[in-house]
Design a binder for these strands. Structure first.
Lengths: 277, 277
DNA sequence: CTAGATGGTTCCATTATGTGAAACTTGGTT
DNA sequence: AACCAAGTTTCACATAATGGAACCATCTAG
């Protein structure tokens, strides 16, 4: 099984400075997805006991990790949740894109994804599911492969050459389904087609039975901000049918891009803090 | 105006080790809520230029910050979003509590908050507003004072003595309204009452016209996990009326606590990653 | 109740790392 | 050309991180 997690492995932290190591530990703890004991962390860590211990202590005292004294386990700390809020607003397209995604999802009646590119992997920052009420964070924050998803290919297709090189170099080309593009050449061919027609398809390349249509979110300067996609089951829709939704998707992407660009020089709106208790 | 931001001021980072400083910078950048230039950060930073420069470089190369080469501004990086997701799931009660909060909100038709205690301050991790569709992250992540909010007092009331000491020591006792408890003694008296009856009131102590009822979320071992509250305007409801909702709140808190406890020894559910595109 | 694990914490000489004043480059402005 | 501010690099120096080893618990087995 390939390493599908996009997070830097602990090995990459070598010689990366103290903060790099600390962050590697943080990532590692985050990776478990549950509280973990010190010993457990140590088992999977390249750092010697004492070093790891201090790193964890530092992170804990900084509020990035939290030690539950009862069970002696570490979990991610509240400071991270606070940062999460800020990250949401500052970095991601999600808050800007949200209303557009809502509208799209309502209009099309299908699942809609918003994604960004992160070190060669696709980071889903928001998701809207028309039928079921959204458990918002259930999907957002997850990462997936770029070479075999609609959003991934849509973004890659419009990357400047050097960035594209980087990104491709990071693809595992693992075959998930019979349709998965498993080599550089076929991917490049698909990317060219995507560039031509302006949207990407995922023809059950990642998961059998799941198809999707995706378009990139581009600034006027052609910078890739992210991508949005509609997903459906091949049982319910054909690729061609999905293709007909392209104009709607493209319109939404355009609006998001425009608003995102406007964000460039924001007039720091002093959103009043209201009605807490 | 008191410093209402819960984030550690840069000053606290003095002698805190390299990671502490780096995290202080991260917090600072997060605090702007928008992309910032290096010079701007430097202006508000206690660190000398070169040091700050390297710290920012480190954070950037680590993916915690992101430098937009076009505008020369720094924003929070994607790695943070990823960590945020994990933090949300691991550390906070939000994902567990969400359905219960939904139900509560629907049942009572009032605004419901879910909060946790963070270094003497209240961290709102989720919010449900019955009438308007929730813009989920708009409020979550915000921090507020503990001594004059329902959730804050509800949690403090059930803290072990030493922790309570710590927490009280961190209160500013700033008078927001005529009803604000502005000294240790009256706070302690209120906490005793809260302990007795099992729920806390906020009688316009933080914001005029806003009242609320809160109950703590406690484990069987009486550990404070968080608190939930219903908020109303004094125009629309009386404190007594709110008080009648206590059983419903308590029931929800109990359910949340039970589920949260179950999380203690999770059987690492291999949640399948579905329907992406 | 020992003997031996195993998980967690502390010491401390060594050295890698981070520090920051100052110098330098770049690009824009008068 | 002269100036100024933002951003970047340098380098002698000192702080802060390192990690091997020793040290405390608990806990388990004999």
């Amino acid at each position: 099984m390939p390493d599908r997690s996009g997070r830097p492995s602990a090995g990459e932290a070598r010689g990366a400075g103290t903060v790099g190591k600390a962050l590697a530990v943080l990532d590692q703890v985050a990776g478990y997805g549950r509280p973990v004991r010190f010993a457990e962390v140590q088992r999977d860590s390249p750092f010697p006991k004492a070093t790891l211990y201090r790193l964890i202590q530092t992170l804990t005292s900084q509020g990035m990790l939290r030690l539950d004294p009862e069970s002696g386990t570490y979990a991610l700390g509240v400071r991270l949740v606070r940062l999460a809020h800020a990250a949401w607003h500052t970095t991601s397209l999600a808050p800007i894109a949200r209303p557009h995604i809502d509208a799209l999802s309502a209009e099309l009646g299908e699942t809609v994804h918003l994604a960004q590119l992160d070190h060669g992997q696709v980071l889903y920052v928001d998701k809207r599911n028309a039928t079921v009420p959204v458990r918002m964070y259930s999907q957002a924050g997850k990462v997936g492969p770029a070479y075999c998803t609609g959003v991934g290919k849509a973004m890659m297709a419009f990357l400047p050459a050097p960035d594209l090189e980087d990104t491709i170099a990071q693809q595992s080309f693992h075959r998930f389904t019979p349709n998965t593009l498993t080599d550089r050449a076929s991917l490049l061919r698909d990317l060219a087609a995507i560039r031509d027609r302006g949207h990407a398809f995922d023809d059950e390349e990642h998961e059998a039975g799941i198809i999707c249509l995706a378009v990139p979110i581009l600034t006027d300067g052609r910078q890739v901000l992210g991508a949005i996609s509609v997903t459906a089951t091949s049982a319910r829709r054909s690729l061609d049918e999905l293709g007909e939704l392209a104009p709607a998707l493209r319109a939404a992407a355009r609006k998001i891009a425009t608003e995102a660009s406007a964000w460039r020089f924001p007039d720091r709106a002093a959103e009043p803090l209201a009605t807490t208790g």
